[in-house]
Each structure stands twice: as structure tokens, then as C-alpha cells.
Design a protein around this nucleic acid. Structure first.
Length: 290
DNA sequence: CGCCAGGTGCTGA
DNA sequence: TCAGCACATGGC
């Protein structure tokens, strides 16, 4: 059993906030992958308890994946600049932006465009079952995320048969780009946001929104501020009447929230997506208490 | 059944 | 540069 100190952290909020698509829960444990290694993890207060199939998953590696080295209170105070984001922070304090694998994040968010999370999860799971490597841990059986080299050799029709729809050719083309070394994922982690985003926009199926998601979740670019339909809804708070393009919202948000705008985005996204659900459970709690 | 989903690429003004 | 449109699929 590996133990990892985890102050200012909410495993649940982090794993259910729509930045990763492959974590599942069984008997109070979360099962997922860090790279190609399975991790079984649960949180108890300020500590994580972990088991893994791979000795390479050291406490340091796990801590890095969950970005536990970052000073979250400092980040949150830097983005806590209006009442709406303040509410989101109050409700989901401890949510952190993961440091996921760049290629997996890129491929996943190509699948995520114009789609819903349930189906995204299904598509990615089928991709892994078809082209990943089987891995087991205790009773858990899963498949690692396929490499770019592997997906580059898969015919478009095979990807379509997994339910990827019109994204199939995009994913295949991007897998080829990465496999040929024309999109240096290791390098992108070390260059700035603008450079990373420009490189990502060169992939088919990657526009502004997907590029920002990949920059944020896969390449540690915390200025990135992805805008999807949920964020458009959240941003109505700032522009009740004036109609704004996504580009306008993007420029405003980056100025408004600063260098950790991506954290603000993730808190707001999770918050607005769960507004109705949170309200109804709150009413339930209120009525059972009285 | 119609509507919606972590949008993008293409086209024509 | 920007609006308008087609695009696959499955959950609800």
C-alpha cells in the first residue's frame, strides 16, 4: 500500500470534473491509469492510499499526476475575483487540474468534440479494448491507452466501427502526425502556451476549444481557457445582454482570471454542469433535516 | 420522437 | 475576419 500526502485536494471533484475520461469507481476505490500503469486509489482526509500494478508508480509520480506539488490556496486566491467563481470554489475546493499524458489527452479530446461525456467515455474505452494492452490489478481488468504508433496503422473504417463517427479520420491523421514525430509532445510540455496551442491547431479535428483542453489537461498550460457550450452558459453571468463570440469570451476570461485562468475554467465548468443536481440534493438535505 | 452533447472544417460574403 | 452550415452517434 502506497501512501501519498494530499493536502488541499479533492479526489472526487478532480476525477469527476470532465478532464479525464477513464476513471471508474468500485467499492470506494477509484481505478484508472497513469500512463500505461493501473492505479487504485482512495482518499482519507489529507492522504491518498494507493495500489498499483507497476513499481514505477512511486509516491512522487502519483503526486505529480494529481499536481499535488502546486500551492492550491495560492492559485485559488488568484482566480477568486468574482462571486460566481467564488461559489464554484466554495463548492468544489480541492479540485485540481491533472497532469495527464499529452498524446492521450489530445486523442481523447478529438473524440470529445460535439459529443457528450457518457459517449466519449464509451468511445475511448472501446479504443483501449481494441488497440491497448491488457492490464490487471487484483480484480480489476483494463486496457492501456493505445499508442499513436498503433492507432496510426488502424484503418478509418475500423475506428468508425467503434462509434467514432466523423472523428475517425481526424484521430487517424493526428495519430500519424504524432507517430511521425511531427508533433513533438515531449517538447510541447516545455514551451509556452501560444507555441503549444499553435502546434496543436495543426492537427485535424483540433480547433480552439480542443487545443485549449489539451494544452491545459495534457501540457500544463494553466492560462488555457477552453470554451464549450457549458462555459458559454457560465459566461452569461459576465455578459447578461451583450452577445459575445467564443473568441471574445476567451480574451475576456484570460484577462479577467490571469495566469491560472484554466483553473477558473475547470471550477466554473464543473459548477455549472452540476448546478441543477446540486440544487436538488441540497433541497433533499434541507427537507430531511427539518 | 426531437433535442443535446467539453466543436471543427468548409464555404461564401 | 466572420456567420452559416454539414457532420455521426447515442442518451435522454
Amino acid at each position: 500500500m502506497i501512501e501519498v500526502p494530499a493536502a488541499d485536494f479533492s479526489l472526487r471533484a478532480t476525477l469527476t470534473s470532465g478532464q479525464a475520461f477513464r476513471w471508474t469507481e468500485h467499492d470506494g476505490w477509484a481505478y484508472g491509469f497513469i500512463g500505461s500503469s493501473v492505479l487504485k486509489v482512495r482518499q482519507d482526509g489529507d492522504r491518498l492510499f494507493c495500489e498499483s500494478s507497476d513499481p514505477a508508480l512511486t509516491p512522487n509520480r502519483i503526486s505529480d499526476y494529481f499536481a499535488l506539488d502546486l500551492n492550491l490556496p495560492e492559485i485559488l486566491s488568484s482566480i477568486n475575483v468574482d462571486i460566481q467563481v467564488h461559489q464554484a470554489i466554495m463548492r468544489y475546493r480541492g479540485l485540481r487540474v491533472l497532469r495527464q499524458d499529452g498524446w492521450e489527452t489530445l486523442a481523447s479530446f478529438i473524440c470529445a468534440s460535439f459529443n457528450n461525456i457518457k459517449r466519449i467515455e464509451g468511445m475511448i474505452e472501446r479504443l483501449c479494448q481494441a488497440y491497448g494492452e491488457p492490464v490487471a490489478l487484483n480484480g480489476f481488468r483494463g486496457f492501456s491507452f493505445p499508442t499513436a504508433e498503433r492507432l496510426a496503422r488502424v484503418p478509418e473504417r475500423s475506428l468508425r466501427s467503434l462509434g467514432l463517427g466523423y472523428r475517425a479520420p481526424y484521430l487517424r491523421a493526428t495519430a500519424r502526425l504524432v507517430a511521425e514525430g511531427k508533433l513533438p509532445t515531449d517538447h510541447l510540455r516545455r514551451v509556452d502556451y501560444e507555441t503549444t496551442k499553435r502546434a496543436l491547431l495543426g492537427c485535424e479535428g483540433v480547433g480552439d476549444k480542443v487545443a485549449d483542453c489539451v494544452a491545459l489537461f495534457g501540457f500544463e498550460k494553466y492560462e488555457a481557457f477552453p470554451i464549450d457550450v457549458w462555459m458559454e452558459r457560465a459566461m452569461r453571468y459576465y455578459f447578461r445582454h451583450r452577445k459575445m463570440t467564443r473568441k471574445g469570451l476567451h480574451e475576456y476570461a484570460r484577462r479577467h482570471f490571469g495566469p491560472y485562468a484554466g483553473y477558473a475554467q475547470q471550477y466554473l465548468y464543473h459548477y455549472v454542469r452540476n448546478l441543477r443536481a446540486a440544487e436538488s440534493t441540497k433541497h433533499k438535505a434541507d427537507s430531511t433535516q427539518s
